[in-house]
Structure formats: structure tokens, C-alpha cells
Nucleic acid binder design. Structure first.
Lengths: 324, 324
DNA sequence: ATGAAAGCGCTAACAA
DNA sequence: TTGTTAGCGCTTTCAT
């Protein structure tokens, strides 16, 4: 039997007689034949791999935010028979244009870039290149780069309305300002507050970069000492909110008795924190899953572009209460 | 100029005249030449990829435990010019022997399997196969499978001694029993307590499987209602410890005033929990990094096998105190 | 419906 | 020191 016959059978062609097909399939099973993926990729110039890239944050995979997105991506990719190639956008990754090479090389057929920042301007190169790229949970305004993200303007609306409704009129905001989604959140948060006559002077804020517990802790310290009149801290994510609670309780302040704290993300520990953290549920697993789905659609040419926003939802727990 | 000359230059051979080498390098740079990795792998039958496999836990990448290990692996792999291929040991992964195929296929040159369980007996097949495999933070007793893990017997010793020293004589233990390391921890914990005349009857315990907050919560509920005399809860990891604290504080019990709680892992939120969690620091980043290093050594034939244990360290915070 | 043959882009043994 | 050549294992026209 010739190689081509075998190849056709194994790739599910209809052109082979049933009896032959069965003979091939049986032989393949008996011999435990496994096609060499390298050879396959070489000739088809498709690796059936997707590159998943995350920013070079400290120990980034330990962040549940990224973990959840990656889990979602994996699930979808796996169902479609794709493998996941992991990458971190370190200096060399950018300097050596690895983000392009990995696609040029055919190590990956497409790229999912999770949580880029406003500094990742190198991504704009993909406007010129035709390589399939999708930004996950971020976007570049005024660019044609594909993205799928949680709607952070809606998120800000939900947060502001919740706190205002509880009577808070002096709210401290801690938020990362290195993402366009973070900036959107901040701007929209102020916008909604101002509509309810709560002006900027009652809304001191601190911008940061790492979005972690330590920054929440430090920022809360600064905000509370400069503005003791604050009755609520709005943190850009749960990790910072946990840092905020830590500082407040350390100072003997009660949460939410003295100061309410609200986060964003609904990470698992938010539920098990003391007090349970009021936050927004962003379904990051779904963000990952859908992002991957969209990218695969683009690879299959059943979709040309993607610009999609997913809704967040309020999760009420014990860390927010009426203003004192 | 011939392909072989170029190939030799690009692979750093010394056999090429300097002037020629420079001419090649310049041309390559000018043309932005990128070797096709697929072709390269095909001929060399090395993919320069490492497979990293994790068990099929719910949203496993969101667990900081895995995240930290993966970060460490990535760092080491990246330095050595290797890529990371991510996988989850789902049903199909096992049923279809994907764990072997991925190596047979040459999609990966070696495999790091993180946190296998006692049920992952399929891994024993690797005793017969010559494919490079290393178990990360687990091991199979009486097998020749390579591993690198934290020393959980030492961990148990540190925990037991800490609690005994604080005067605790009635300690509830919550621990996953689906790993050999978990069983080791339990057995050693009892052993140390018994040496100090604290017998099994004062050490009620509950075995579990998922090692998560919910299980810690449920187990603590059962332990405390059946054994109100308990003055401490020893949890097999920090996530379960957080669940324990959650249940206790929900019941109006003070931690550590009424009941001390101790965890294992030192996940980031342990520091920012209220109260801060006393725990063991296992340097999982280092576990990942070293595991990857050992595997690469085995690939390079500079090492034949690996059976290595890393020491844990006590981290004192506020969740443990003298027995009431 | 099946087989023969070319070639994907590279490496390495061998020749020159 | 450099060039020639033969594959690596597969897919895919093109003949048969």
C-alpha cells in the first residue's frame, strides 16, 4: 500500500474504498502508529499550536486572573485539537521580536496576548502584519487590533452606583493606570459620581502599576492619612482590595463599619476573605474561552475581526455597607 | 553560497572562515531571516519544547500553587531556549495516551508532570519507556520515576512542633489523601505528636481530595462540631486553611484566640488574610525552576536520574497562638 | 480508487 | 573551508 493512500485515510478523505480504509485503520491501530507532528507541520505549514503570551509581571502565572483566562483558553484550544505554547513578554521577547518570530517560524498559528498594557506599543506592529493576533482583556483605542475584553466602563458604572447607593460621598480610588481598561474604569467611575453631584474633590485617587496587594496596602495608607473623611475604598481589583482591608484592619478600623472596601474580579479568595469581599464577577474563564474561539474562527477564515465586550456582574458580600 | 555553509554559520560552527561567517550573518540580518522551526525539528527530531502537564483540577491554572511552579519552569526553560507546551491531564489525555504521544510525536522533548496523585498510575508506564519524565512536587514510592519535590515529612515535623510548642494537645487535621506527599504529611504529623504523648484520639482528621477552600470549610465544620475541644486546625495547604478560618470566624470564634489555624504553602493571600496565616513557605518557584533544570540535564545526558527533596520553612504570622 | 513522485526547509555526512 | 547531496516523515498534485 502506498503512503498516499494511508495519508488520505488518516486525514479522513472520502475518496478511499471502505475496505481499504478499514485495512489501513486496523494496521495503524495495531502498529500504534502516531504521525510525526513535525513533518506534518512542515508540509502543511500549520503547527496546530496557539501562542499564549502574558506580560512580564512578577510570577505572573500565580495570579488567578491570568490563570483563569489561561484555563479557558486551554479548554477551547484542546477541543479544537490545538496545543498551547506559553510565553512571557520579557525584554528579550520584545527586543528580539519573538512575538513575530514565533508566528513567522510557524511555531504557532496565532497569538493570544493577555492583559497587555498601554506600554506594549510594539503590538501595534500587528496592524501591518497579517498574523492572527487577539488581545485578551485589553485593547488599543484607535487601533484595528482584535480584542475581546470585559467591559470596564460598565464595571465602573456598577461599582459607583453600588457605593453611592450605600450613601458614600467620599470615596478613595486605587487603580492601575497602565492599561486602557484601567483608565476607562477610572474615567467612567468619576463620570457616574459626578452625575450624582459627587465631585472630584471628594474622590481622591492613586494610580499604580502592579495591581497587587502591596500597592493596595500602600495606596490605602496614603489615601486614609491624607483624607480621613473617606468612607469607602474602591480598588481596581481584588488583590488591591485585599491589601486595603489588610491596612485598615491593621489600623483597628472596621470593614465595613468604618470604611467599606470594594474590589473587582471576584477571585476565589475574595469569597473566603474576612470579611467576604464585595466585588464584580468578571467571568475570566469565559473571557479566555471566547477569545480562543474567536481566534480560531479567524484562523479558519470564518471571521475577519473581533471587538467584543463582556458584561461584569455585581457580587455582594460583607466588605461594603452604609456610609458611617 | 550553499545552504550547508549558511546552516553551519547559523548553528555556530567554528569551521567557517570568519569573513564568510560575517557575510552570512549580515545577509541573514538584512533579510530578517528566521529559520523554520518545523523543518529544523523534523530533521533534528528535537522540538526544543517541554511539555508541562497539570492534573485536571477545576480551573487548575488559577491555583497559585501551580502558577508559581509553572513560572519557575518557564524561567529555566526560556534561558535554555526551550518553549513550554501546556497540557491538562484530562480523561482523553490519559485514555488516548496523549502523555506518550506528545513525546513520541516529537511535539515535546521531555515532560514535567506537576502534582500527580496516587491515582495517576498511568505514569508508571514511563518506567518501561525511555522518554524523559520528571514528577514535580510528587513521587511514586517504590518506583524509579524521577522526581523533585518539597519534603513533606519535614514539613509535617515543622508544623507539629510549632503547634505542640504553643501548647496545643487537641489538633484537627484536614488534608488531601490523594497524593503520596499528603499521606506522608499526615503520617509524619501523627508520628511527631505521638512522640510528645499526644495520641491519635486527640488528633481527629478528615481526608479530602480537592485541597480547596470549600473542603477546608466543610472539614472544619465537621471537626469542630464533633470535637469542640480542639484548639487548633492544621490544614494541608493554605487554601484549606483559609476555608477553616472562614468557618471559624463565621461561627464567632476568634482566630487564634479560640482556635489556631495553620496552613502550608505560603500563597500570597496568606500574608494579606485577616489574621495573617501562619504557614510553611515552600519555594514553589524554585521547585519549578530546579525541576526544569534537572529535566534539561537529563535531556543533555549530563544526568541520569533525579530524586531530590527541598526544605520547607516556617512562616510565623497571627493565625496561631497559645492554646486556650 | 490507488500509486508514483515531488517537495516542505532544514541538517549533516561526505566530497571536493 | 566550502559545496553537493541525501534524506527527516509527511501531504498533495498528477498519473494510472
Amino acid at each position: 500500500m502506498s503512503p498516499s493512500t494511508v495519508s488520505l485515510v488518516l486525514n479522513g478523505s472520502e475518496k478511499i474504498k471502505k475496505s481499504t480504509r478499514e485495512r489501513v485503520l486496523k494496521a495503524a491501530a495495531d502498529l500504534e502508529y502516531r504521525p510525526n507532528e513535525m513533518a506534518r507541520s512542515l508540509v502543511s505549514s500549520r503547527s496546530r499550536c496557539l501562542s499564549v503570551t502574558v506580560p512580564a509581571l512578577n510570577h505572573v502565572f500565580s495570579d488567578v486572573y491570568f490563570g483563569e483566562i489561561i484555563s479557558g483558553i486551554y479548554q477551547q484550544a484542546n477541543e479544537a485539537g490545538y496545543k498551547i505554547l506559553l510565553d512571557i513578554a520579557q525584554e528579550s521577547f520584545i527586543a528580539e521580536k519573538e512575538y513575530l518570530n514565533i508566528l513567522r517560524n510557524r511555531r504557532a498559528d496565532g497569538m493570544l496576548y493577555i492583559a497587555s498594557t498601554i506600554e506594549d506599543r510594539f503590538l501595534l506592529e500587528f496592524e501591518e502584519e497579517h498574523y492572527p493576533l487577539l488581545l485578551v482583556n485589553h485593547y488599543f483605542p484607535q487601533s484595528r487590533l482584535n480584542f475581546l475584553s470585559v467591559d470596564y466602563r460598565k464595571a465602573a458604572t456598577l461599582c459607583a452606583e453600588h457605593l453611592l447607593q450605600l450613601g458614600h460621598r467620599h470615596i478613595g480610588l486605587v487603580i492601575g493606570t497602565n492599561t486602557f481598561t484601567g483608565l476607562d474604569f477610572r474615567d467612567r467611575f468619576f463620570e457616574v459620581c459626578e452625575k450624582r453631584q459627587v465631585g472630584k474633590s471628594s474622590l481622591p485617587w492613586i494610580g499604580c502599576k502592579d495591581w497587587d496587594e502591596q500597592e493596595g496596602y500602600n495606596a490605602t495608607q496614603k489615601l486614609m492619612s491624607r483624607h480621613p473623611e473617606l468612607t469607602a475604598i474602591m480598588a481596581g481589583n481584588d488583590r488591591m482590595a485585599m491589601g486595603a482591608i489588610r491596612w485598615l484592619t491593621g489600623k483597628g478600623l472596621r470593614v465595613p463599619g468604618d470604611v467599606s472596601v470594594m474590589g473587582v474580579d471576584n477571585i476565589p479568595s475574595a469569597q473566603y476573605a474576612t470579611p467576604g469581599l464585595t466585588t464584580l464577577k468578571m467571568d475570566f474563564f469565559q473571557v479566555g474561552r471566547l477569545s480562543c474561539k474567536r481566534l480560531l474562527e479567524m484562523l479558519n477564515r470564518t471571521r475577519a475581526e473581533c471587538a467584543e465586550l463582556l458584561d461584569p456582574h455585581l457580587v455582594l458580600r460583607e466588605s461594603t455597607g452604609p456610609a458611617r
